[in-house]
Simulated assay, not measured.
Amino acid sequence: MQVNFQIIRQSENAPPWVQSYDLEVEPGNTILDCLNQIKWEYDGTLAFRKNCRNTICGSCAMRINGRSGLACKENVAQEIARTQTLSDSGIPKITIAPLGNLPVIKDLVVDMGNFWQGLEAISPYVDSSGLPIPETEFTQSPQEREGLNLPGNCILCGACYSECNAIEVNPQFVGPHALAKANRLVTDSRDNQTSQRLEEYNSETTGVWGCTRCQYCNSVCPTGVEPLEQIGKIKQKILATHQHTKEPVSTAIRHRQVLVELVKSGGWIDERQFGIKVVGNSLRDLKGLASLGPLGLRMLSRGKFPWSFEPSEGTAAVRSLIESVEKSSNY
């Protein structure tokens, strides 16, 4: 079958441009097979990364028809069926572009420096310092080891990083790949730095609270790591450590706690209390309260400030559901 490949090409610090190639391919050919065909038979200047060709190394991550994935995993038939787009000549079209959120070096090759810095920021290694040294090795039960399986499947391909909305607006966010690895560390029974790690990952902008929960990282992960779920597990651990403490907590933790408190109380959020309790820390943060002023005035001027609050008819059912979840998750 004939397929048109539209490849976004670019040199460093230069504007991108599109080059078109018409290939005769088999439906089962992978996208990497097709890129190899272009490079070997049509254009040796095309640059892209590859290595294992078997969904192990993560080298060939790129955007395929607007969605980040591995070129060695996605095949022609799947992509044509998914997008059903045609070229100007009327044949099926597949568009290939470099990963997002990373600067382009050449064509489909990106500079992964920021990606690796995000990983380095979470101290991605087990730290057993301070633990008694065993005679042979640090051992784990099958149950303890099982908890490491999912985050341990990450091959650091960059697909989740490429699609991350949080990184797009805040380059200081460490990224879903790093936080998925972070949950592996705070889950590992051989690590002796859990409390320090949770404090580090508690950052409102660079850590777990910087995540926008858009689900894109889960949808593109080629190995099913589900980075968003790993981030959620870290949040649960952080919240559990602050559940009974009287120490001041961050705005992000208050946001979660107040949201649950208000929904349990009224079935949905009482917007009159939410900002005051979260940003204003229940009238204890005068600077935070002052920051609400401009927003409050705009809401008042546009008739969007609720003067009263009516609890939901299903408040009791909502409260029961939340309490059941809290009980089952030991939070």
Rank of each mutant, 00 (worst) to 15 (best):
V3N: 01
N4P: 02
Q6L: 13
Q6S: 14
Q6F: 04
Q10L: 05
Q10H: 04
P15F: 09
Q19Y: 11
S20M: 09
Y21L: 06
E26M: 13
G28M: 10
N36P: 02
I38F: 03
E41H: 09
D43S: 13
L46K: 03
K50D: 08
N54L: 07
T55A: 15
T55C: 13
G58L: 07
A61S: 04
R63S: 14
R67D: 05
S68H: 04
L70Q: 08
A71C: 06
C72R: 04
C72I: 07
K73D: 06
Q78S: 12
I80W: 03
A81Y: 11
Q84E: 13
T85H: 07
L86V: 13
D88A: 10
I91V: 09
I96W: 03
P98Q: 12
L102A: 12
P103A: 10
V104G: 04
I105K: 11
I105V: 11
F115Y: 15
F115N: 08
W116N: 08
W116A: 06
I122K: 03
V126C: 02
L131W: 02
P134R: 08
E137W: 03
E137S: 12
F138A: 00
Q140L: 01
R145E: 03
E146A: 13
E146Y: 04
L150G: 00
P151E: 02
P151L: 01
N153I: 01
L156G: 01
V169R: 15
Q172A: 14
F173P: 03
G175W: 02
H177D: 11
L179Q: 05
A180G: 07
R184D: 13
R190S: 00
N192G: 04
S195F: 08
L198H: 00
E204V: 07
T205Q: 15
T206I: 11
V208Y: 01
C211D: 01
R213V: 13
C214N: 09
Y216N: 09
C221Q: 05
T223E: 09
T223F: 03
E226C: 04
P227M: 01
L228T: 07
Q230M: 15
G232K: 14
K235P: 00
I238E: 04
I238H: 06
H242W: 10
Q243I: 06
Q243V: 06
P248F: 06
P248C: 05
T251N: 14
R254Y: 13
R256P: 02
L259Y: 14
L259F: 15
E261W: 07
S265M: 10
S265D: 15
G266V: 09
G267I: 04
G267Q: 08
I269W: 07
G275K: 00
G275M: 01
K277G: 01
D285I: 07
D285R: 05
L286N: 14
L286R: 13
L289C: 04
S291D: 07
L292Q: 11
G293V: 11
L297C: 11
S301Y: 12
G303S: 11
K304E: 12
S308V: 10
S308K: 12
F309V: 09
F309W: 02
A317F: 08
I322L: 09
I322N: 02
N330T: 11
